[in-house]
Design a protein around this nucleic acid. Structure first.
Length: 478
DNA sequence: GAGTTTGAAACT
DNA sequence: CAGTTTCAAACTC
C-alpha cells in the first residue's frame, strides 16, 4: 500500500507517470546551483536600476512579464520555473527586474523540481497563517494595505526573502487604477495568508518541518532555529532527504489520494464520500476524534477510511465507519454542522469544473500539470474554492439533504482526477506566481478572474497541498 | 504569548 | 513491527 505524504495524489489508472508526458521539466538542482549567479545578477540589477530600461508594458499599462508570468505560471509552472533559456531571453529583452526576481524566487524556493527523480514542487506545507497571526508586522501590513511598499521590501532579493511583487514595483500609473489597487490589496492578503515553519530542534531537516516536507527551502518568514534547510546547505538538505527516502521512499509522496472509481480504495472499503479522497496511510488519532487538524485526514479535508487506526472517529469529512454523508446521528450531524461552519476557515482545494456550470475545462496545458491538491496546498488557492459560494452553490443551495454536510473541501477534491491532473476551472485558472506578493510564500495561486468574495480568504490549514511531484518521488538517481 | 495537547515522524 | 521518544503544529487559556 502506498504511503503518502500530506498531499493529494492521483492514482493513475493507466499507470502512466506524468513525468513521462512532461518532458519540459528539468532539474531544479541546476537552477539552485545557478543561484549565486542569478542572485548576483539580479541583485546587481536591482541595486543599479534596470540597465536595460523600464519594464515593457502592455497596452493596458501592465508589465508584460507581470501578466505573462502569471499566465505561464498558471499553466506551465514547471517549465516556467526551470526554463533557464527563457530567463535569459527575458534578460536580453530587458524585462523588468521584478519579473526576473519572481522567476528567480520561484526557482530558489524549491529544493528540487525534477522531472525525475522528483523532489518536486511540493507545496505540501504551505504556508498558512494562524488565526490572527501575521508573518508581517502590523506596521508593514498597514503600509502595504495602504498601497505602500515597505522600504525593506522594495525589489531586494535577499538570501531568505522574496522581492516584492511586480505589481508593487511597477510604475505608479499601474497602482493608481482601482483595479490595480484591488489586486494589490488582494495580493497583500494572500501574502499575509502564508506562514512558515517554526522548527527549533529539527534543523528543518526532518519531516517535522513543513518546509522541508514540502520540498521547499525555508525563507525569512520562517521562525526556525538552526535551520539547515537553505540553499546554502543544499548538499545537506539533499543528503538528508535522500536518507529519509531511503528509509521510506514515499516519505515525500502525497499522503492523500483520490480514488474516483467509487468502488473501493486501496483498503477495499467502500467510499461513501463522493470525492473519495482518502489519506493513503490513514490517521492514528486517539483523542481528537478526527475532528481537529491534529488529524491528517481532517486536515486534508478527507474522510477517514479503513486505513485509519483512529479511535472514536468522528471525522466530519467522513468517518472511518461510514461517515458524514450518509449518517445523521447526533454526533455525526453535529460534527458535520460544525465542519460546515468551519469551512470558512478550513482549507479547500479546487472544484470540479463539470460540477459547476460556470466552470469550464482547463486548457490542455493546465491539464497536464502534475499537481495534486490537499490541505496545505490550498493555502495557495486563496481565490479558489474555499470561500467561493459560486463554486459550491450546488451543494449549498437547497441543501437539506445529507450532502449538505459534505465538506466543500472534499467536494472540491472532485476536481482532482485520477489521472493526476487536477481539473482546474478555466475561469478559476490558478495563477501560479512566484509569490510576487509575498515574501512568505514560495508560490501563490491566484485566479485571474477571481471573485472579490474570495479575496479575503485566509488560508490557515497546516497541510493542504499542491504538489507537482509524481506519486512516487524518488531521490535516487535514475 | 505561554503553556498544553496532539499525533506524525523518528528512533530503539 | 511495536513501543517509545521527539518534534512542531494545533489548540487552549
Amino acid at each position: 500500500m502506498l504511503t503518502m505524504n500530506s498531499s493529494i495524489i492521483h492514482e493513475n489508472t493507466d499507470g502512466q507517470d506524468w513525468r513521462t508526458t512532461n518532458p519540459g521539466t528539468t532539474s531544479f538542482i541546476s537552477n539552485i546551483l545557478q543561484f549565486p549567479l542569478d542572485k548576483a545578477n539580479n541583485s546587481e540589477n536591482a541595486e543599479s536600476g534596470d540597465p536595460s530600461g523600464s519594464c515593457k508594458q502592455s497596452e493596458s499599462g501592465e508589465p508584460v512579464m507581470d501578466q505573462m508570468h502569471g499566465i505561464l505560471s498558471t499553466c506551465l509552472p514547471d517549465e516556467l520555473v526551470v526554463n533557464d533559456s527563457g530567463l535569459k531571453k527575458d534578460d536580453k529583452e530587458g524585462n523588468c527586474n521584478q519579473s526576473n526576481h519572481q522567476q528567480f524566487s520561484i526557482r530558489r524556493r524549491c529544493l528540487v523540481f525534477e522531472k525525475s527523480p522528483g523532489f518536486g514542487l511540493h507545496l505540501n506545507s504551505l504556508p498558512n497563517i494562524p488565526k490572527g497571526q501575521s508573518p508581517l508586522s502590523k506596521s508593514t501590513l498597514s503600509s502595504m494595505n495602504r498601497g505602500e511598499v515597505p522600504d525593506d521590501n522594495k525589489g531586494v532579493v535577499t538570501e531568505n526573502s522574496y522581492e516584492m511583487p511586480a505589481t508593487f514595483g511597477g510604475n505608479e500609473a499601474d497602482h493608481n487604477s482601482p483595479e490595480k489597487k484591488r489586486q494589490k490589496f488582494e495580493l497583500v492578503e494572500e501574502s499575509v495568508a502564508c506562514k512558515r515553519c517554526n522548527c527549533k530542534r529539527s534543523k528543518c531537516l526532518k519531516l517535522y518541518c513543513d518546509c522541508f516536507a514540502a520540498g521547499l527551502y525555508c525563507i525569512e518568514p520562517c521562525s526556525c532555529q538552526d535551520c539547515f534547510n537553505k540553499p546554502i546547505h543544499e548538499n545537506v538538505v539533499l543528503e538528508t532527504r535522500r536518507q529519509i527516502e531511503s528509509r521510506n521512499p514515499l516519505a515525500f509522496a502525497p499522503k492523500v489520494i483520490r480514488t474516483t472509481n467509487g468502488v473501493s480504495d486501496s483498503m477495499g472499503d467502500i467510499n461513501k464520500t463522493p470525492a473519495s479522497a482518502r489519506h493513503k496511510r490513514g490517521c492514528n488519532c486517539k483523542r481528537s476524534s478526527c475532528l481537529k487538524k491534529y488529524c491528517e485526514c481532517f486536515q486534508a479535508g478527507v474522510g477517514c477510511s479503513l486505513s485509519c487506526r483512529c479511535e472514536g472517529c468522528k471525522n466530519s469529512f467522513g468517518r472511518k465507519d461510514g461517515g458524514c454523508e450518509s449518517e445523521s446521528d447526533g454526533d455525526n450531524l453535529e460534527a458535520c454542522e460544525k465542519n460546515a461552519s468551519e469551512k470558512s476557515s478550513h482549507d479547500t482545494v479546487i472544484s470540479k469544473g463539470q460540477e459547476h456550470p460556470n466552470l469550464s475545462v482547463p486548457s490542455p496545458d493546465i491539464s497536464r500539470l502534475p499537481f495534486a491538491y490537499t490541505g496545505k496546498l490550498a493555502a495557495f488557492f486563496p481565490h479558489s474554492i474555499k470561500s467561493s459560494p459560486q463554486l459550491c452553490s450546488t451543494q449549498e443551495q437547497g441543501s437539506s439533504d445529507t450532502s449538505s454536510c459534505k465538506p466543500k473541501l472534499e467536494s472540491n477534491l472532485d476536481g482532482i482526477p485520477e489521472n493526476g491532473t487536477p481539473e482546474i476551472p478555466k475561469h478559476k485558472c490558478f495563477t501560479l506566481v512566484s509569490n510576487p506578493t509575498s515574501p512568505n510564500c514560495k508560490r501563490v495561486f491566484s485566479t485571474p478572474n477571481h471573485d472579490s468574495t474570495s479575496s479575503s480568504t485566509k488560508w490557515r490549514s497546516r497541510k493542504l497541498i499542491l504538489r507537482s511531484v509524481p506519486s512516487f518521488p524518488s531521490f535516487s538517481p535514475p
